[in-house]
Amino acid sequence: MIRDIVICAVQFIILVFCQVFILDNIYFLGFINPMLYVWFIIMLPFATPKWLVLVSSFVLGVCIDVFSADIGINACVCVLIGFIRPALLNAFSGNIDNVTFQRPSVSSLGLKNYLPYMALTVFIHHLLYFLIENFSFDEILTTLLRIVLSSVVTIILILLSDMIFFKKNE
């Protein structure tokens, strides 16, 4: 259990670091701003209590916010993602034993279940994030393009990292 907490903490730090100092500085076609840090909420162990999911989502959002100019947007969206995570997991995971410290991943859920769960979470996150960031319907088409392209890139990044890091553990 303590081992799991330590692993989560390390992942937290690495993801925040990656997001703030690498991914936020990448410029590609002008529309793409992948947000890999959502992966942290997606891959919290199944057995994490609901309140802990909410609190850690909030802390994650605040940490990312501290490094971006508009404070609060990431926290707001992350808390919402943390709130709907149990429902999404239930919908797609079926009968996974809730006492284990297993994490949602391709190997534990299977691509068929993991992909829709992860993709839906990422899409909701990006949708809300970019809508709040823009806060106007003037450029709604551009915003939608931004949402779709960024979501696709984030989903691919999460799938790749999942395959790289979770293979080793088994």
Partner: peptide, 21 residues
């Protein structure tokens, strides 16, 4: 429903942060 209250509190706090901007 403590979980819903916690959600509302954290969400409220985040929105308060956004208004500070």
């Amino acid at each position: 429903y403590y979980y819903v209250f916690l959600f509302l509190v954290l969400e409220g706090l985040s929105i308060y942060f956004i208004t500070l901007n």
